[in-house]
Design a protein around this nucleic acid. Structure first.
Length: 453
RNA sequence: GGAGGCGUGGUGUAGUCGGUUUAACAUACUGCCCUGUCAAGGCAGAGAUCGCGGGUUCGAGUCCCGUCGCCUCCGCCA
């Protein structure tokens, strides 16, 4: 940047040349209140245009927020400006009590950078978008313009960031495992098939095997934030066929409590991060951040007995049905004031082959689910560390261990006691904000019917 | 894979035990009026053969069958 000429080029890409021919640095809407009296350049979208005869108001929205501009005697310009268009504005910042935020832009020059269609599929400049979920997802780039919709993803970004930072601080390594795989983790029933140069392959339904392999590889503690794929033919408000899994696995654990305490701490940090960095997003949804510390722990059989005595609800053996999950969560909330509840000791038959049996009750596993406001948001547990035991279990389930040879090899090289978990990012976001459908917590959701956008 | 429900202008809805409607309302859109709007307001206008196909009937947005799409739930799962 020492050459004068280079410097000019850099400035030219950052600034914009308006009619006056003067280069200006861009100011963000959120910075405007601090620039009273200055002439500034703003870029963004025409969020709303209101005309009152010779005076007109244009609300410009950019990534930081919104600011109002007043245009006098520019009727023709404003009439030719469809809401949603990309614009650049130059004007003087003035204090104005009548404007929201106390400041507005005056003596405005308006440049239309790119017009929006005259009639949008739905209005995004209202407190709420009046459109069905299907319309919102069909025109996702537009629905995401709405501050409330965008807030969902600012919250999700904070959750994910804090998950990462919390694990890094605890000595976990972030890893990236293949999404194209030769075998599934559960046996192959719910996998998407892919043609891999003429060979059958699948989209990974979980990074499970790779996480465990990386534990024994010497990393001890690994985590991954990545998509997983489920070819389940389900169609509900809480299922996606591609979702973001917050996965972790750690070696040398002493017991199930290590995992439960880790998750409790992580969730506490994740929610704290949302409160600290996206409080306004929470407010847009009227969301209350729950207390995390002291999550009640119930064994599955205890939970089922409680449901029967308290709610008269019979659940099928081996798992809680969705109705049972909701009833149990409500019960725990009223009794213990917790929006969360850990359910532990699921039967081996209801868990994957690698789940570690409880030594005192070999028909049960040292595994857990975490329910958050009536919905399962995490599954985890300790894993079988012995290759020979795993081979036996696979055969019992009709699986051929030779199909899992690369995974099983890991157990030949000193696999420590280990365990881990996976948190569904969209479900966590959904329940935190009180969204009605998990699709709202996915930018571009994939479900049984939707493959685009 | 199973069960239930719903498809009406761009969007969101009303009308549905068949018949007085040229299918209504809100909003968006177009034109005009308006110098403090911020869910702006006022006046005027355009826009839907009521998802599609077939049937019953003198008559179907309304009833029946099929089909497609969507929603909710269940199994399963994060």
């Amino acid at each position: 940047m020492r050459l004068g000429r280079t410097r000019v080029i850099v400035l030219a890409t950052r600034g914009i040349r308006l009619s006056g021919g003067v280069l200006m640095q861009r100011t963000l809407a959120a910075e405007v209140p601090g620039r009273v009296g200055e002439r500034v350049l703003l870029k963004g979208w025409a969020h709303a245009v209101r005309m009152l005869g010779k005076v007109g108001f244009l609300v410009l929205r950019d990534r930081s927020g919104a600011v109002q501009a007043v245009l006098e005697d520019q009727e023709r310009t404003l009439r030719a400006l469809p809401a949603g268009s990309a614009v650049a504005l130059r004007g003087v910042v003035a204090k104005e009590p009548r404007a929201i935020g106390g400041v507005e832009l005056r003596q405005v020059e308006l440049e239309l950078l790119s017009p929006a269609a005259p009639a949008l599929p739905f209005e995004v400049n209202r407190p709420e978008i009046a459109a069905g979920l299907d319309a919102l997802l069909d025109h996702r780039v537009l629905s995401l313009r709405h501050p409330r919709t965008a807030a969902v993803f600012r919250v999700q970004a904070e959750l994910v960031r804090a998950f990462r930072e919390g694990l890094r601080a605890r000595g976990f390594l972030e890893v990236h495992t293949p999404k194209l795989v030769a075998t599934g983790t559960e046996g192959g029933a719910e996998l998407f098939s892919v043609d891999y140069f003429g060979r059958p392959a699948y989209l990974a339904q979980s990074p499970q095997f790779y996480k465990q392999m990386l534990v024994v590889a010497g990393f001890e503690r690994v985590f991954e934030v990545g998509p997983v794929y489920r070819a389940e033919d389900h169609d509900t408000s809480r299922h996606l066929n591609e979702y973001l899994s917050l996965d972790l696995e750690m070696g040398f654990v002493d017991g199930l409590d290590d995992l439960l305490e880790l998750e409790e701490s992580l969730l506490e940090e994740m929610f704290a991060a949302v409160t600290a960095h996206a409080a306004d997003a929470l407010e847009l949804w009227g969301a209350e951040v729950p207390r995390v510390r002291g999550i009640p722990r119930l064994r599955l059989d205890e939970a089922r007995a409680l449901l029967k005595t308290c709610c008269g609800h019979e659940t099928p053996a081996g798992n809680l049905d969705p109705e049972g999950e909701r009833l149990l969560s409500a019960r725990v909330a009223s009794e213990h004031g917790s929006d969360f509840v850990f359910i532990t000791h699921y039967p081996a038959a209801a868990r994957p082959v690698y789940a570690l049996p409880d030594p005192s009750r070999p028909d049960l596993t040292l595994s857990f689910d975490l329910l958050f406001r009536g919905l399962e948001v995490t599954t985890g547990g300790l894993r079988i560390p012995c290759g020979e035991t795993l081979r036996c279990r696979m055969r019992e389930r009709g699986l051929d261990p030779t199909n899992f040879a690369p995974y099983l090899e890991a157990f030949d090289y000193g696999m420590p006691p280990h365990g881990g978990m996976a948190i569904g990012a969209e479900r966590l976001t959904m329940k935190l904000l009180g969204l009605a459908n998990v699709r709202e917590a996915s930018l571009f959701p994939r479900d049984r019917a939707r493959l685009a956008p």
